[in-house]
Design a binder for these strands. Structure first.
Lengths: 141, 141
DNA sequence: TTTATTGTAATTGTAGCGGTTACAGATGGG
DNA sequence: CCCATCTGTAACCGCTACAATTACAATAAA
């Protein structure tokens, strides 16, 4: 999992609450990062159909769907592929020992399984849930 | 999640099948890494009570518990704390906007939740399961 | 035409991690 | 007792991944 997921989720939460077009600079300020990074992430969200974009003088980004229909799993799949990522693998497929030879595919499968668990959890939360959580007992701001 | 988990799980699977004391060099060869790294991991496994060690002339490492009682969650907690690890956080606690201020703790909680999902999954697999999986339809080797 | 914006590529700085070397301490064999 | 073999651990190197930054072409409204 990369921090791009956080940038994406935060940006979408911001766009949702704002309900209007926002520039990458405005979003970056709220997220606490730089506009170029926001734009890179927003490009992926656009490809996934989660935001609408508009270049030019009064451009910016805007939510493309109702917030209760966008889950964090959608957000994650828009910006990345693996949640639990470990690049290094032990053993080697061409060794005689079944343990040394089999551990690599075994771990691949295990990590697939962990990813599935996380994806299921992420699917349970929507942008609307986030807004509710952040503005609970605070009186609209 | 660090690759140390893989080194640990692979080493334990090897020790389990071997059923006898092994040196860090023998384990490292099977895992495909260097003995010092294996020793570093085994030290943590020893602290967690998963292996017994023996220094000296005929030393080495040995499983300390029956394989069906050791889950991958035990193994993970012995070598690391976080499964889904993202260090970067967005926003800032001292900003006025509830979104910018609240996103950090919100993400902390979300990642805790993802970790819990993964831990639950890891708890479902034991060293005995791994041995069965690797030696299935292969005839004992 | 000017200006604010997206889209994207190139580059840099940095932190984390795997690999390696080295050595002190332990322990049993001769 | 002395030596060989092993653990335990610290120190350092080098690579890779990623966040940050800069730059610029394309777009579109005023």
């Amino acid at each position: 999992m990369t921090a791009e997921f956080i940038v994406a989720a935060h940006s979408l939460a911001y766009l949702n609450h704002k309900g209007d077009y926002c520039s990458s600079e405005e979003i970056a300020e709220n997220v606490c990062t730089n506009p170029a990074r926001v734009r890179k992430v927003m490009t992926k969200l656009k490809r996934a159909g989660l935001v609408k974009t508009h270049a030019g003088f009064v451009g910016g980004y805007r939510l493309a769907k109702p917030p209760q229909t966008v889950t964090l799993r959608d957000v994650f799949y828009a910006v990345g592929k693996r949640i639990v990522k470990v690049t290094w693998r032990s053993g080697s497929p061409d060794m005689d020992c079944p343990i040394a030879a089999g551990m690599r595919p075994y771990m691949d499968a295990l990590f697939d399984s962990l990813d599935a668990c996380c994806a299921e959890r992420l699917a349970k939360t929507t942008l609307a849930d986030i807004d509710r959580a952040l503005f609970a007992d605070k009186g609209e701001a």
